[in-house]
């Protein structure tokens, strides 16, 4: 199993909801979508690439063949999937510190939810209900969500800047270039080497180093073969 891919961590949490309350939870998610301020904490935290909440009615587990036994569940279930940057502790802690109300709003309909404050019971609640990821793929393991967003800003700015490359004197060019730099002053952070945020991330880094050596060997073998 591996929960980490580069700068991202895959969290899966499954928690029971009383089936007759599941609709209420859906209403709250719907409201969250429609009332942007409810998500402003999440947006400001800026630690998430993508996250989702899925509510599975107790009769809604996929049934794909007659020979598959039917589920006979007493509860409905809420699945939470998140792709976040940083370590498990950082993520869970940042959430409870900054948006405890939002967490409670989403989870309080779940059986035996701990509430987000105090921290230790909340940690235990998440740990208890977490499902480990077997295989995690990330198209941009070197990038945090902030990097992806700032890259978009950089790209747009460079494309716009290209339009005027040849206009005016050199001095005018330099002034425009300096304005470009000023506009991108929060978007120039490096993305490599990836920091080690946990002992698991250290293991992952070692695996990548091994792969890197394998790749080099393959390349070397290929070029020898070519001669």
């Amino acid at each position: 199993m591996f929960n980490i891919a580069g700068k991202s961590y895959a969290m899966n949490v499954i928690t029971p909801v009383r089936w007759y309350l599941a609709w209420l939870n859906k209403v709250i998610f719907y409201a969250a979508l429609k009332i942007p301020s409810t998500l402003s904490g999440l947006i400001t935290l800026s630690l998430i690439h993508y996250a989702r909440w899925v509510i599975i009615g107790r009769n809604q587990f996929p049934h794909m063949a007659p020979e598959q036994p039917r589920e006979q569940l007493k509860y409905s279930y809420m699945l939470f999937f998140s792709n976040f940057n940083g370590s498990w502790d950082q993520y869970v802690d940042s959430f409870t510190f900054s948006i405890p109300g939002g967490l409670d709003m989403f989870w309080k309909w779940n059986v035996r939810y701990s509430k987000s404050v105090a921290l230790t019971p909340f940690h235990r609640y998440i740990q208890y209900n977490q499902l480990e990821t077997q295989h995690y793929y990330n198209a941009y393991p070197l990038a945090a969500s902030n990097d992806v967003k700032s890259a978009k800003t950089v790209k747009a700015a460079l494309i716009a800047f290209d339009q005027e490359l040849r206009k005016g004197t050199d001095a005018e060019f330099l002034a425009r270039y300096n304005t470009l730099l000023r506009g991108l002053q929060h978007d120039m952070g490096d993305m490599y080497p990836t920091p080690i945020v946990s002992m698991a991330a250290y293991q992952l880094e070692r695996r990548h180093q091994r792969h890197e050596r394998q790749l080099q060997e393959l390349k070397a073998a290929a070029s020898e073969g070519g001669v």
Partner: peptide, 14 residues
């Protein structure tokens, strides 16, 4: 046929 619908999908980056 195996798919479930998200109640809330949050896109934090792009």
């Amino acid at each position: 046929q195996c798919q479930l619908t998200a109640s809330l999908f949050f896109v934090g980056s792009n």
